[in-house]
């Protein structure tokens, strides 16, 4: 946080939070990430896009008077009084090695590549912790019965934060299973969008090269200015 940003919070109400069991006073209304930085943590890992997309800042927290263990993204979760926080930016996860070209979009891919999937107890613990509010159990169960499309569909907003996997009593790596489902659906089953092919052709024909070069040549200040002035609503996907 730079001086300017700190100046913007002068009259902020301060609240008490606990990070790794140590007490800190931070401005109310901060997100977990800004609160950590306010408290003096220098975040090099466990922080990424700060916009809720990259999944790097997964955090666990508990609230006062509530036995439940909550999961949230550090950049998107606002701190609350007496909150206990720890970041869990990474969950070790086995990942099957495969070549998408050699796979077929058939139910058997799951028994072959992620047989541990069949240990799922349907306890719903993964759904409880998911910061994206996904029906994680349901997408895992879709995979169990070999329903690739439903598994891909229900997991579409997964940002691979890893919290579900850390909590799973069956030690499943939900997000990697989901990734496999989405890749197979994307490659083999989903309707192909013509606009994607068109855009790829445009990229290959160097239509955007000049534009990128222009951005690269800007000074950091000008680049920031351009970023904040961009017309979000006019973005064409």
């Amino acid at each position: 946080m730079n001086e300017l940003e700190k100046d913007m919070l002068p009259q902020a109400v301060m609240i008490t939070i606990y990070v790794l069991s140590r007490q800190y006073h931070v401005p109310a209304g901060s997100t977990i990430l800004t609160a950590l930085e306010y408290a003096g943590f220098k975040l090099k890992k466990g922080v990424g896009c700060r916009e809720g997309f990259c999944g790097a800042c997964a955090s666990l927290y508990r609230l006062q008077g509530d036995y439940k263990l909550h999961g949230g993204l550090g950049c998107a979760t606002v701190v609350q009084p007496e909150m206990q926080i720890v970041q869990l930016p990474y969950t070790p996860a086995p990942k099957a090695i495969y070549h998408l070209e050699e796979l077929e979009p058939v139910p058997e891919v799951f028994t072959q590549l992620y047989p541990e999937l069949y240990r799922c107890l349907s306890c719903n613990t993964c759904t409880k912790i998911c910061p994206q509010d996904l029906q994680v159990m349901d997408y895992i169960q879709a995979a169990v019965r070999g329903d690739l499309e439903q598994a891909a569909d229900l997991s579409f907003d997964c940002i691979q934060c890893g919290l579900c996997s850390a909590r799973c009593p069956a030690e499943i790596t939900q997000f990697n299973v989901a990734l496999l489902a989405r890749r197979l659906v994307g490659k083999y089953l989903a309707k192909k969008g013509k606009y994607v092919e068109d855009r790829i052709k445009e990229v290959e024909a160097s239509k955007f090269t000049a534009g990128y070069q222009e951005l690269q040549d800007l000074s950091p200040e000008d680049l920031k200015k351009r970023y904040f002035e961009r017309e979000l609503n006019n973005l064409i996907y």
């Binding site: 058997e108 028994t111 072959q112 047989p115 541990e116 069949y118 169990v144």
Partner: peptide
């Protein structure tokens, strides 16, 4: 050990057997 199940065999087995 789950990782010792032959992939070819895993491909054949129904979900009910694995679960």
């Amino acid at each position: 050990r789950i990782d010792e199940i032959e992939p070819e065999e895993a491909k054949k087995l129904p979900a009910i057997a694995l679960v």
